[in-house]
Amino acid sequence: MTVGTLAERVRNRAGRDAFGEALQLIGRENDAVVVVGADDISSLRGNAFAAEFPDRAFNVGIAEANASGVAAGLALGGKIPLVLLYGFTVLRAAEQIRDDVCYPNLNVKVVTTSSGLVMGEGGVTHHCTEDLAVTRSLANMTIVQPASALETAIVTKAVVERLKGPTFLRIARCRYEDRAEQALQDYYLGGGAFEVGKAVTLREGDDITLIASGLMLSIALHAADLLAESGVSARVMNMHTIKPLDSAAVIDGVTQTRGIVTLEDHNVLGGIGEAVCGVVSETRPIPVRRIGVRDTYCAIGPMDELFEKYGLTAEATVEAAKEILAGGSRGSR
């Protein structure tokens, strides 16, 4: 299937729908692909796959630790299991993912579509702003977070077909915003490739570097537009692979611009911001500001309003960028 056809199929779809679509396609092409869910297969849009391949979809009930262990066993038996989990249940199954998947380096894909604040109204226990901290800390783990419906489909196919080993796929439950959809459509239809561990610079700029992925990419693009209006040239990087981080791309940002702003729908501790700070401080220290949830449990409410309330916005990004360029030195705490 060409990228063009794929793009048609997932146009205007939510992230999880694009995932479901891709999953079904992969299922047809490779009968080793199986799905393990914890009473959430439909929530993660694995239902089309489950309907077409009932023998290859396993709902083990509300038992995420077991789901992860079962997936490990399936991988041992030569299958390529995708474990579908709610974001916060990555924490519930953290030790099984560590010991049974990552430690023996098994080919298990952990997929969530409700990480971050996307389940805004669902309540604090269903928010998940710690999952990247948990998965990043696990050796052997690869973490990928797509930023548009098309990228979701491309990434899903790629990690199943080409990437052997433990992978965490962090997909959005909702629609991605048009800015990111458009930018990535242009990129992929224009012949751009998805390569694990290779960030994509979507926009060039030499004053400041904005690093984002997932739902935050369109906010970064928006911020870049706003910055351009005030004469600041911002580079925008789609950091779809969060681990291993593309340190070369970060270093380019470090050497070619005057500062970095990271964006994530996650605690600023443990996620992309932390990863970037780690590279920057080892290379050539320039100021970094982290946009994200500042180490708190969020209130409930629609995701967009939560983004406003907790400063996950283009405006906050612009402000952080300007502060860096003005040479201000303060903690954003």
């Binding site: 669902g122 604090v124 309330k309």
Partner: peptide
């Protein structure tokens, strides 16, 4: 219920 800032959270708090 379920509005931002409410004391009635989606899941009990």
């Amino acid at each position: 219920f379920d509005q931002i800032g409410s004391r009635l959270q989606g899941h009990v708090d």
